[in-house]
Amino acid sequence: HQVSSLPAALPGCKSNKEACLHWVAEGLQTYMVATKHLESQSADNSLPANIRYLCGLLISQIKQQMKKPEKVRVLTSSEEEQLLKDIDRLDAFSKRMTALSILDQFRAFLSDSVRKIRQKEKAKQKRNG
């Protein structure tokens, strides 16, 4: 029940910090959309909304650190719709499994992303003395 359209953290972060931040900012937007599916599956549907709010703040912080934040692509509304439609077609059991998978994939994405950014920032600090 892995959602193939959700991004993994590392592939886009092999090169420089800018590329890494770009990947994370775009990835976060995709996960923000995916959390909409969690609202129907969650016992407390205010949590997915809070997650989206914090993701928005994080994307702003990331963009502030970027040289070219305008290059971060925003998902179109039809792309958003497609992502949610793919999930909506599933039966109830698969929807639940997909929700679990989104949570797992999102957690891994965040942990990997912050670890990678930490490596880049520490390396830069070291270079700058």
Binding site: Q41, A43, L47, Q61, R96, L103, L110, R118
Partner: peptide, 21 residues
């Protein structure tokens, strides 16, 4: 530093606290 932002941990906490029906 961006990696020191508390938002990363806050989002992970919410993910961990999210209980599915």
């Amino acid at each position: 530093l961006l990696c020191d932002s508390s938002i990363w941990g806050a989002i992970i906490s919410l993910i961990d606290g999210l209980k599915l029906q």
